[in-house]
Write a protein that binds this DNA or RNA. Structure first.
Length: 574
RNA sequence: CGGGGCGUAGCGCAGAUGGUAGCGCGCACGGUUCGGGACCGUGAGGUCGUGGGUUCAAAUCCCGCCGCCCCGACCA
């Protein structure tokens, strides 16, 4: 392909609303353009990469034995009412009416249509198990789209759904998909990790996220170097610290200190000359409307996912100021749990395991501008439940083996869920088993954000000059920079020849044949980030040579023109 | 939805105290250049987000609306 005929509008400067590195590079390199918040146009170069990812995913889905289908993006309200998500799914579900005032939505995912499709034709255990998948546009009306195509409202996804007659079959499909995902991300050339994850709004029994590792990733991952356990920090189970034996002689009596206008943990610690791990943070939530109190150490963060799981509630929200005051009898920021149970016996107090070991700590003083020092929870606070409630952080130990976690960051590119019977039961996707009884199918669902994978590839692999595509995803394999193409017939002859030879061997080439200065051509090619670069110019042609450079490397080498194609072939991954 | 910021040429920006719009990049034409985003000259390109108000006069001041971005809840 000649660049002069291709549509690659590159930009020297990124638009100011591009917020992430990959978003900036995708726009600058002419992969995408933005039409509106969270809505993108994919240009030829970007689409090529998208298709490469799609092809890899399709091949691995087929290899795993899944069958491709194509489902509508506009879906009827009735199906969503059957699953209960018409009301349960938040505002991310874009709902609308057709001319007959019938309700529809733009599909954010496809459990409903897929389950509906399957239940009509599947009636016997003899037909199970199987797995269907599709590629398609998904729409989620995100409150705040961000990070370019990584969190767009409209995005391209592969979603697969497995249906099984029993747990064993269901687990086998989960494993097949898990393995297929391993192959997909390996083939994409990624550094990645499969981690245990929270099941979130999709619901279900258990799940893994496939994280593309990148320092700029949105998610933090805890991994155990000893037993291999890896989990999103939202989920990572932490070993409770060993109980500390408290020496009664150490304990000091509680005492109130004036701390006017001091609100943050850091400020309190500084004013009172204690470290933040001595501070007991009190948080008030409403769990399905009922107020609850949570305590965590000042240097820790409460993990709402864990708290929610512990409470087994549907909705967990930070309490309003009124509720806070009502529950604690104090002002926001100055409540302490000492004596709280005595004052308000109906309120449940939950505390993170680490709070148990605080001795002579600091807590809110239950008065405006006052904190209480020498609070020792074991003596002074009636905690109902101690549990693992904190976000995993540096120094935490693996709940399974006790080794200290390592932390990395990643981008969630794929997610596998074991759904169980959540949708099949509510939507009546039943089958008849050997014993003539009807039971719901056991489902699994498996997603890969294809458009997000493209952005993730860039987040993981780039430098100051631009993108560095992993070879399997590169829009073209070879960049052929033909300097003096327009003015030197020899350059034109050899460049055309090499391009034709490469293309004849199935190697894709993008040749810059434009009548531009060399600097512009180099800069553009670096930005676009094709893995292999060949330069042909008056200079090299005079010596019967060309110049080769890998995008990842700094140094280039000279090759004879006659051997260029063969040498290049050696370097290209098959 | 709550808090903060912004909307002026394709992109990045400047336009105190109101006087009818400019710069850099990019684009077109001519010339000099030609291995890491050259230089000179000429030129095209703008309902200043939008609706209203104040005023002799509004990009500028006031009000409404819309859009976009950042911080929080969602997620592939």
């Amino acid at each position: 392909m000649k660049l002069s005929q291709y549509y690659i509008p590159t930009l020297k400067e990124a638009p100011k609303d591009a917020d992430t590195l990959s978003a900036k590079l995708m726009i600058r390199a002419g992969l995408v353009r933005k039409v509106a918040s969270g809505l993108y146009e994919w240009l030829p170069l970007g689409l090529k990469v998208l298709k490469k990812v799609e092809t890899i995913v399709r091949e691995e889905m087929d290899r795993a034995g899944a069958c491709e289908v194509w489902l509508p993006i506009v879906q009827p309200k009735e199906l969503w009412e059957q699953s209960g998500r018409w009301t349960f799914y938040g505002k991310e579900l874009l709902r609308f009416e057709d001319r007959k005032k019938a309700g529809f939505c733009m599909a954010p995912t496809a459990e409903e249509v897929m389950t509906d499709l399957v239940k009509k034709d599947t009636t016997s255990y003899k037909q199970l198990p199987f797995c269907l998948y599709q590629f398609g546009t998904k729409f989620r009306d995100e409150i705040r789209p961000r990070f370019g195509v990584m969190r767009a409202r409209e995005f391209y996804m592969k979603d697969a759904y497995s249906f099984a007659a029993n747990d064993q079959q269901a687990n086998e499909w989960y494993q097949k998909m898990y393995d297929a995902y391993q192959r997909v991300f390996k083939r994409c050339g990624f550094e990645f990790k499969a981690v245990e994850a929270d099941t979130g709004a999709i619901g279900g029994n258990f799940s893994h996220e496939f994280m593309v590792l990148a320092d700029t990733g949105e998610d933090a991952i805890a991994n155990c170097p000893s037993c291999g356990y890896a989990a999103n920090t939202e989920k990572a189970e932490i070993q409770a610290p060993a109980d500390v034996k408290i020496d009664p002689a150490e304990l000091k009596p509680m005492e109130n200190k004036a701390t006017p206008k001091v609100y943050t943990v850091e400020d309190v610690a500084e004013l009172l000359h204690v470290s933040t791990d001595k501070i007991i943070k009190l948080l008030v939530f409403t769990a399905d409307g009922k107020p609850v109190v949570a305590l965590v150490r000042g240097d820790h963060e409460l993990n709402e996912f864990k708290f929610k799981a512990l409470l087994k509630c549907n909705e967990l929200e930070k309490a309003s100021e009124e509720v806070y005051t009502q529950v604690t009898g104090s002002f926001v920021g100055f409540a302490g749990a000492q004596g709280l149970k005595e004052k308000n016996p109906s309120v449940m107090i939950y505390a993170d395991n680490y709070v148990k070991n605080i001795v002579n700590g600091v807590s809110g003083g239950n008065e405006k501008d006052v904190h209480t020092i020498n609070v020792t929870p074991q003596r002074d606070i009636k905690v109902d439940v101690y549990a693992d409630l904190k976000m995993a952080c540096a120094g935490d130990k693996c709940a399974r083996c006790g080794a200290t976690f390592n932390f990395t960051r990643g981008i969630e590119a794929g997610h596998v869920f074991k759904l169980g019977t959540k949708y099949s039961a509510s939507m009546g996707a039943n089958f008849l088993n050997e014993k003539q009884t009807s039971e719901p199918m056991i489902m699994g669902c498996y997603g890969i954000g294809i458009s997000r994978v493209v952005a993730a590839a860039i987040e993981q692999s780039h430098d100051d000059f631009g993108i560095i595509w992993p070879e399997p995803l590169a829009p073209f394999t070879v960049a052929l920079v033909a300097i003096d193409y327009a003015s030197n017939p020899d350059v034109k002859k050899y460049a055309d020849q090499i391009m034709a030879d490469l293309e004849a061997q199935g190697i894709s080439v993008l040749m810059d044949d434009r009548d531009e200065r060399p600097g512009i051509k180099f800069k553009d090619m670096d930005l676009i980030g094709l893995p292999h670069r060949l330069v042909i110019s008056s200079r090299t042609v005079a010596d019967g040579q060309c110049e080769y450079k890998n995008r990842k490397e700094k140094e280039s080498t000279r090759w004879n023109l006659t051997e260029a194609v063969a040498k290049l072939k050696e370097r290209i991954q098959k």
